[in-house]
């Protein structure tokens, strides 16, 4: 069940983001289709993370619209975006360092829990049941990403690769329809990269659309069917890995113009 459903899950529509005079993202438009692995690539400073921040509401776009599952989410607050079903990881891992791996993933389920202040204060049966469910689900997710042996370890004490995996588990805990991964393979060995690609495929097989930023062309080419290339905030190419690889502007952006 990969690309048979062609309906867009996320539409980025003429999005521009300015910081003062600096245009970080310049009139970018593309669709992410339901069930696919979609990649956003580009050299350093191309505006990839800024675009992620725009989608997730951390820094709303200056102009343009973001449409998720036919609903406009431009300017929604980050927690609203997450509740609607977009989860993300961060380029420079942002785990809750002094919480256990288990608690990190349990926190990810926060917006899917219904216990109110009253339930928490008096530990009502509803609260107990929900906590049990959330714990079970958290352990399931830790297993899914393959770090269950670190369940009770503080996040900061996990090895680097496992921290990236924990971040993915935490994001999956929000039960997203769309998962944004910001350079998930950064700093990985080739072996780890292969394992990560396997994990990404597993996530998609579970019905979650994956939209990832990657710096390493090889990872992207191997994992995704469709790619958008940003350079200096502008979209310079879009298409299959082959199309992008042979695109003159992409080659120039990555290798510099040969004059």
């Amino acid at each position: 069940m990969t690309v048979e459903a062609a309906a867009p899950i996320l539409r980025v529509d003429h999005v521009t983001k300015r910081f003062g005079g600096l245009v970080a993202v310049d009139d970018v438009t593309f669709d992410v289709k339901k069930g696919e692995i979609f990649a956003l690539i580009g050299p350093n400073g191309a505006g990839k993370t800024t675009l992620f921040n725009g989608i997730t509401g951390i820094f709303p776009p200056t102009t343009g619209r973001v449409i998720f599952q036919d609903r406009e989410i431009t300017g929604a607050k980050p927690h609203q975006v997450a509740t609607l079903g977009i989860a993300r990881t961060f380029q420079n891992i942002r785990l809750f360092e002094y919480m256990s791996a288990l608690d990190n993933v349990r926190l990810g389920q926060h917006c899917r829990m219904s216990a109110k202040l009253w339930d928490s204060l008096f530990k009502t049966p509803l609260e107990r049941r929900e906590e049990r469910r959330v714990t079970d689900r958290a352990i399931e997710l830790l297993k899914f990403v393959g770090i269950e042996r670190y369940t009770h370890t503080y996040a900061r004490n996990l090895p680097y690769g496992s921290q990236r995996r924990l971040e993915i588990a935490r994001a999956l805990a929000t039960n997203p329809a769309l998962l944004l991964l910001d350079e998930p393979a950064a700093g990985f060995t080739p072996q780890e990269k292969v394992e990560l690609m396997g994990l990404v495929h597993k996530i998609v097989d579970n019905g979650v659309t994956v939209f990832l930023i990657e710096h390493d062309m090889k990872v992207v080419m191997g994992v995704s069917r469709r790619i958008v290339v940003l350079d200096h905030g502008e979209k310079i190419a879009e298409g299959t890995p082959e199309q992008v690889r042979n695109d003159q502007r992409v080659i120039e952006a990555y290798l510099g113009k040969q004059h």
């Binding site: 709303p60 200056t62 406009e72 989410i73 431009t74 300017g75 929604a76 607050k77 609203q80 509740t83």
Partner: peptide, 15 residues
């Protein structure tokens, strides 16, 4: 979801 729609409407434009 009403709150989100509302918030979005409120924040749609910087204006």
């Amino acid at each position: 979801m009403g709150t989100i729609g509302e918030a979005v409407r409120r924040r749609r434009s910087g204006l």
